[in-house]
Amino acid sequence: MTLMRSPWFWYVPSLLLCLVAANQQRLVSITALSPWAGGGFGMFSTAEMRGNRHLHAFALRPDIRRELAIPASLYRQVQQVLAFPSEAALRALAMKLAEIPTPDSGPVAAIEIQVWAVRFARETLQPSGVLLQALEVAIDSRENRAAEG
């Protein structure tokens, strides 16, 4: 057997793995990214997974706060928000939710989105909700008109 020097490019795949995983660790520590997501190999390490998160969305009009039923067509986008509820992702989802018709009259003033995680008590496994992220996004009335049109 002969000892050979390995070319540098042989290490690119494992270097990529380490960089992405280290960045995922960073994102989880400074944002609400789920440890299961983002390529950091955090799956099966915590009950803090996308499936144990949920969101509530409200359409806000003067004196009216109505919870919205989220249409199935937004399923993928909602799943992305649950895994990584960044401000940009919440804003993008709010814009889509503003287009959902409600029985209330008048333009939607804002959309409020709350992302919740379920935590389990150590002794009893009693589940309880923890608010991870909440954002109220003002909806431009011109956008409302465009949506209605």
Binding site: P13, S14, L16, L17, V20, L33, A37, G38, G39, G40, F41, G42, M43, R50, R76, Q79, Q80, A83, F84
Partner: peptide
């Protein structure tokens, strides 16, 4: 990237 499983990343590498 938020929804891809860990082995999706590993497969790519």
């Amino acid at each position: 990237w938020q929804l891809a499983d860990n082995h999706a990343y590993l497969l790519c590498y």
